[in-house]
Amino acid sequence: MALLEIKNLHATVGEREILKGIDLTVDAGEVHAIMGPNGSGKSTLAQVLAGREVYAVTEGQVTYSGKDLLGMKPEDRAREGMFLAFQYPVEIPGISNTYFLRAALNARRKYEGLPEVDAFDFLELVREKMKLLEMDQALLNRPVNTGFSGGEKKRNEIFQMAVLEPKLAILDETDSGLDIDALKLVAHGVNALRGPERSMIVVTHYQRLLDYIVPDYVHVLADGRLVKSGGKELALQLEETGYAGLGIADEEEAVGRV
């Protein structure tokens, strides 16, 4: 049985349709990359899957672990093992990173009928994951993402993912804004979490990340539709010909190549 099955998904914001019929199936343990030019709807897809209310689903179904995903509250999707690493992680002054993450972990544990972990056990529990992502204690004690550099925010997202151990991780442009060392670190963190029980959807604009996180499948999203799917070689092909090679307009690229 597929872990995630998206059928003919349409989503709008206000009057405007952004997702125009997406079909995608992700099996347990698979890594799917979704690539596409700016504004093609990658983040919208990721946010719709996580349950963001500003987007209205107008057509289609999504099944997750055999359940109707679209009928679930965002918090329940998370408790059922879904995780979204945000393209733009939100700064929340006044709540420490550790407090936040422990609350998240405990919410999930409570849902599963497990006892909550206290502050002390929590630190024990996350020590290894901190090492994995070279998170330093100071960063943990600071308010959530507040004043973090772009790279620190992305690393913090993957750190959260490492602690929450999701079944389905959706990484939205986790590579953007990272220098090559940070990118390697984040990719290393992600790869350490790969396994037969964990699926991933890796959203990216550039193929660079896919050198480090090698996907099983690559899909190209353009104007709200998946226009092409293939294996990892599709990413390499895109690298050579650009989106234009697939007949897709990409403003940013066009500017870059003039």
Binding site: K73, E75, A103
Partner: peptide
């Protein structure tokens, strides 16, 4: 911010209280 907290499994009321507290 509400969505960010909820997307991590924190229920709506708890998220509200957390942000208010913050």
């Amino acid at each position: 911010s509400m969505f960010y907290l909820q997307s991590r499994g924190i229920g709506k009321d708890d998220a509200r209280n957390l942000l208010t507290y913050a």
